[in-house]
């Protein structure tokens, strides 16, 4: 960088990529989100080949590379297998810090489910049992589960 630029007021250009998106959820994902929205239920599905119960459910098992067609209704409770208490606020986040992200092994599932925990953060540990608490006004997205609460 040459000397003269040191004394020049920064020339910058501000911009944003403004593209609206409409993501297709797909048939399998729709069933999951409709169950959340209409029945306050969390459903997964089981790969016949390796018996893994997935949540969120998948059209195909990524490991066996076979389609999945068996639905499984999961409880709304589970245990925390990973967590972090987030200390910073950011507009992308669904709630104010501090809150926790957690990976929750729901009863009956074989993989973890990622969501947030808002209350009782000082009691949060690996293995803590939690329960999904649903929003009153549900729209058919992952935030129809407001958060998980410590049991």
């Amino acid at each position: 960088m040459s000397e003269w630029l040191q004394d020049v007021k920064d020339l910058t250009l501000k911009g944003q990529i403004k593209v609206p998106y409409t993501w297709s959820v797909g048939e399998v994902g729709s069933r999951f989100l409709v169950a959340l929205r209409d029945e306050k239920k969390i459903i997964g599905n089981r790969c016949k080949n390796c018996s893994t119960v997935y949540v969120p459910p998948r059209k195909n098992c990524g490991r066996c590379f076979k389609d999945i067609d068996e639905w499984v209704e999961l409880g709304s409770k589970g245990i925390v297998t990973a967590y972090t208490i987030v200390r910073y606020d950011y507009p992308l986040q669904p709630t104010k810090a501090p809150f926790a992200y957690a990976i929750i092994k729901l009863d009956g599932a074989d993989v973890g489910f990622v969501h947030i925990i808002k209350e009782g953060l000082d009691k949060l540990k690996m293995g803590t049992r939690v329960r999904a608490s649903f929003k009153e006004d549900r729209k058919g997205n992952i935030l129809d589960i407001d958060s998980f609460t410590i049991i």
Binding site: W23, S24, V25, G26, E27, V28, G29, K59, N60, F65
Partner: peptide, 26 residues
Amino acid sequence: HRLDVNGRELINEAVTRALADCELSI
């Protein structure tokens, strides 16, 4: 518009057909 599938599922359709075309598995 393929509203019935998400991106990963769309990809999977093409991959499955390509593998079937040459009789290979993943």
